[in-house]
């Protein structure tokens, strides 16, 4: 019986990691602006890679990662190459989740950024789900809590990792604010 892509991942998990996983991590770092160590620190790497690999167009996803690998290994300016290959939208397109069949690579790159920042994934498995609403979900409670957005906003996820009584009356830890005098209590 033919194995589903997801099964392959689960089985290869553990002793041997999927060879595309390091590429996924390196690309994620380039896309999010967070270092590989920071990303691994969230504990979400495997779940996110798995989320990506669950997409039905498995070949498409592998091709995308292959292309990312080539860019990351290449001698050219990696940032500029990523921008050209994955980020620059055709004029007029501002949809953060562009349709996959129109722009597969841009669509994937953007989804990966949103996934790391907010835990939200919009699946491209059109046939299984009906509306846009049903295609978009937060992949897990942990994904919500580990969203990079909270770190970027210098806070904690709303409803989790609470910083303690009165913490909000002072600037957050590591705030580079010259006016800290207001916050001293």
């Amino acid at each position: 019986m033919k194995k589903s892509p997801a099964q392959t991942i689960v089985e290869s998990h553990g002793a041997q990691r999927d060879p595309d996983l390091p590429t996924f991590l390196e690309l994620s770092a380039a896309l999010t602006g967070f270092s590989e160590v920071e990303l691994e620190g969230t504990g979400m790497l495997d779940e996110y890679f798995y989320t990506l690999m669950k997409e039905q167009d498995h070949e498409g996803v592998r091709a995308f990662l292959k292309k990312a690998g080539d860019i990351l290994d290449g001698k050219r300016n990696v940032k500029a190459a990523i921008k050209a290959a994955f980020m620059d939208p055709p004029p007029g397109l501002t949809d953060p989740n562009p349709p996959f069949d129109v722009m597969p690579h841009q669509a994937l790159a953007r989804r990966i950024i949103l996934l790391w920042y907010t835990g939200v994934w919009t699946t491209m498995n059109w046939k299984e789900t009906k509306s846009q609403d049903q295609r978009t979900s937060i992949v897990s409670a942990r994904a919500y809590e580990e969203g990079l957005i909270w770190m970027v906003a210098q806070t904690h996820p709303a409803g989790a990792k609470q910083p303690g009584y009165g913490s909000w009356s002072r600037p957050p830890l590591g705030a580079d604010q010259s006016r800290d005098k207001h916050g001293k209590h």
Binding site: A30, L31, T32, G33, F34, K79, I82, K83, F86, M87, D88, P89, T94, D95, P96, A109, R110, I113, L114, Y117, T118, V120, L148, I149, W150, V152, A153, Q154
Partner: peptide, 24 residues
């Protein structure tokens, strides 16, 4: 916010360090 700010910024083609700074 803050979720929409990410979608908007990404929709504008921001990524990497620039995205992180901008959102901050």
């Amino acid at each position: 916010s803050p979720g929409t700010d990410v979608s908007i910024a990404v929709g504008e083609g921001r990524f990497g360090e620039e995205l992180r700074q901008h959102l901050n």
